[in-house]
Amino acid sequence: MQFVDLANRFQSQVRVDTCSGEPVQADGKSVMQMIMLVAIEGTKLRITAEGGDAQAAVDTLAGLVESWLGDD
C-alpha cells in the first residue's frame, strides 16, 4: 500500500515485474495489480518508469523496497 501511495506521487508510468522471465508486469500505481504480482519475501523485483520524473520515481521506490529489506 505504501509502495502504491508513493508511486502515485510521480507523473511517470511505473511498472514492476518479478524478473522471473514471465511477461507479467504490474502497474505500480495499482493496488490490485501489485497484489496479483504476489511478490513474497525473497522475490527479485524490477522497477521501471517512463516519463518526466522517471529517474526520481525509480530511485525513490527502489529506496522504499530496500528499506523493507533492512527491517529483517
Binding site: M1, V4, D5, N8, D27, K29, S30, V31, M32, Q33
Partner: peptide, 13 residues
Amino acid sequence: FDFHIGILKDPSL
C-alpha cells in the same frame, strides 16, 4: 480501510 481506499483509487478498477 487503507486497503479499501487503495482499491477505490486503483486504475485497475
